[in-house]
Amino acid sequence: MRKLLIPAAAALAALSFQAQADTGKLLLTGGVSSIDGAAGGGLTPWAVIGSNASEGEWGLSAHASRLHTRDYGLTTYGVAAGWNERVEVSLARQDFDASPAIALNGIAPFGIQPGEHLKLDIFGAKLRVAGDAVLDSDSLMPQVAVGIEHKQLHPGSLGGVIDFLGAKRSGTDVYVSATKLLLGPGVLLNATLRNTQANENGLLGFGAAAPGRASRSWQAELSAAYLLRHDIAVGAEYRFKPNNLEALGRAAGLGSALHESDWKDVFIAWAPTHHLSFTLAWVDLGRVVPGITGSRRQSGAYAAAQVAF
């Protein structure tokens, strides 16, 4: 797999509501790929099924994105398949540039190598269980889907840090999403409720040693998109995070050094054809392991591209 994509961030939104000539599915109503690979927004999955396939058809999509913040970089890429507007499966990889983590060698002999990257593999599956975003657009009924995301972390020389945190190297998120499409005003609203144990989406493992949080928790994720014209949309997302590690850091005398912030973004997306979409966004990841970055906010530009059939 080649590198090219991000978290967060708002890769999606372009919801052009023109009919697709060869399948009958409305243009880009399958959203784009989230950083975890599922169809939806850049930071969060939606209840939609990705690709351009409609009922009775198979569809495929591929995506890549890149986010660069003040101290970090995140590349994401992956593929997804959808069937019958009912089922979606996806594979994605996140490649996180964790170079600032070398400063942790000054705290303990972790053996972190210069320029280290954290890699996270994600397998996802989603099932639409109720509603139809397009056919139910004139009613209060949203489209509803349930999904899972199994994540496997490859920490490289940061393995000692993950062990120090008492975090596991794999974990599985489960979620339910509700997507409401308002065709008249050109508005899409989404709410996702995620049950997770992940630290920084899994890039710092899953759970924590006491007194950190080892148990799972429910976290909300919200998205909204507005269609400026048939091929351009703007929007925003907000993703709440569990902050499992901060209590452990405070007990170790590190203060808020391990605090985990919520993620958010604003974006603009353009769909020149029903096969291509491009997204630009400003993403704010908050303070990511602020103990090694001087508590600087990690915000920056995000770019993403998706091809779908």
Results as ranks from 00 to 15, higher is better:
Trp46Phe: 14
Ser256Glu: 04
His259Lys: 15
Gly30Val: 07
Ser16Val: 14
Val144Asp: 07
Ala303Glu: 06
Ser299Gly: 11
Leu158Asn: 06
Ala13Gly: 13
Gly30Phe: 02
Tyr238Thr: 12
Ser261Phe: 14
Val283Pro: 05
Gln20Val: 14
Val234Asn: 11
Ser295Phe: 11
Val87Gln: 04
Phe206His: 10
His154Gln: 11
Ile268Leu: 12
Leu189Tyr: 11
Val289Gly: 01
Leu165Ser: 05
Asn190Leu: 10
Gly147Cys: 08
Lys241Phe: 06
Ala47Asp: 00
Gly56Ala: 06
Val79Gln: 00
Glu85Arg: 15
Ala125Gly: 10
Gly160Asn: 13
Val48Pro: 02
Trp58Lys: 11
Pro142Asn: 14
Arg86Val: 07
Thr196Phe: 01
Gly30Ser: 06
Gly37Gln: 03
Pro114Asp: 01
Thr23Val: 06
Ala108Lys: 15
Ile162Arg: 04
Glu200Lys: 11
Trp270Ser: 09
Thr279Cys: 07
Asp132Phe: 10
Arg86Ser: 03
Leu43Arg: 06
Asp36Val: 09
Thr273His: 13
Leu248Phe: 07
Pro185Cys: 04
Arg93Trp: 03
Arg128Leu: 11
Ala62Glu: 08
Leu27Ser: 12
Gly59Val: 08
Val144Ala: 05
Thr172Asn: 07
Thr279Ala: 09
Arg297His: 15
Gly253Met: 08
